[in-house]
Computed example of a mutant assay.
Amino acid sequence: MSQSWAAPESTATGHEPATPKRQKKRGDGAERLDTIYRSISDAVIEHRLKPGVRLREDALAEVFGVSRTGIRKVLQRLALEQLVTLTPRRGASVTRPSVDEAKDVFEARQMVECGLMEAAARRITAADVKSLRDMARREREALRNREQRVAIKCSAAFHGRLAELSGNKTLADFVGQLCSRSSLILAVYGNTGHLGCESHDHDNLIELLAAGEGRKARDFMGRHLKSIEASLSIVEEPEAAPDLRDIFSVNP
């Protein structure tokens, strides 16, 4: 598939439009590649890069000003987290979860996130409660302002933070990966303007945890995740080439 960057407009003198300047290489150091990884991961989670979209190494290398080797390392890291699919002779593309994969992800979330609620209720502090309330408030504001991308990111961060409160870093990291994959599922099967959960659900979870009601929080989390899954419908979106310069705010 060809890249869909918009061509520069012709000049007033009638000359051919100038070729965009190639980004100056900034090196492939670990810190730089980690920044690129976060940029692409965020673009996937926030639905700026749609499931199924092809991610060309040469285009990304030009946008970020690094080598194709560096981009390849980033894409391999994203593939390990199942945000990107690597296909022989076709390259990388944003993962498009199947119906069965979507069900598996939510089943895993039921098992893991619900199971962590009792530990979270035992360990939660007043500072944690305040932080969670701030996160829930930002999510509500984003939904109210129809800032879908921000709301999606806030929701994923909220669930990740709840998992961290359990004290089990391994499972918390796994929940973070499941939440990232859930954002892809919402992009493919979700309804526009709806994240699959009621705006007050997270507030209710906070109150249960703050009161030390771990079992009730576990049960409520189960219903919460079920409501998200129940909101999904199979809606196929046509594959389209992304404007990488626009997505990552890179000027020619």
Rank of each mutant, 00 (worst) to 15 (best):
V235N: 12
F220S: 02
G214W: 03
I206W: 00
V235K: 13
K226R: 15
L232R: 12
R215S: 08
G214M: 03
L232Q: 13
N251L: 12
F220V: 05
G212Y: 11
F248P: 01
I206E: 00
G214H: 14
H202M: 12
A240Q: 10
A210S: 10
E239K: 08
R218M: 13
P242H: 09
P238F: 07
E239P: 00
S227V: 07
M221L: 05
L205G: 02
D246T: 11
E207W: 01
P242M: 11
D246I: 13
S249I: 10
P242Q: 10
I206D: 00
R218H: 10
A240T: 13
E237A: 04
L232C: 05
E239I: 13
I228P: 00
F248I: 08
R223G: 04
V250W: 03
N204D: 06
I247S: 01
G214T: 12
D243Q: 14
F248R: 06
F220M: 09
R223H: 08
I228V: 14
G212H: 10
P252R: 15
K216A: 10
S233N: 11
S233F: 04
S233I: 14
A210R: 11
N251E: 09
I206C: 01
R223L: 14
D203K: 03
L232A: 07
I206L: 03
R218C: 05
S249A: 13
R215F: 02
H202D: 08
A240L: 10
M221V: 06
L209N: 03
A217Y: 02
V235D: 07
E213A: 11
N251W: 09
G222R: 15
H202I: 01
H202T: 06
I234C: 03
I228E: 14
M221C: 12
F220Y: 15
R223S: 11
A240F: 01
L208W: 00
N251I: 10
S231Y: 04
M221R: 05
S249V: 10
E237W: 03
G212F: 09
R223T: 09
D203Y: 08
E207P: 00
P238L: 06
E239V: 15
L225M: 08
R215L: 05
D243E: 14
F220P: 00
L225V: 14
S227I: 01
A230Y: 08
G212C: 12
L208F: 04
D203Q: 07
K216L: 12
R218Q: 15
H224D: 02
A240C: 03
A211V: 02
K226H: 11
L225S: 08
A210C: 03
I234R: 13
L208T: 00
R215E: 11
R215K: 12
N251C: 06
S233E: 10
A240I: 08
E207N: 06
E239C: 03
I247K: 05
L205P: 00
V235S: 07
I228H: 09
D246V: 10
S227N: 15
M221S: 05
N251T: 13
R245C: 05
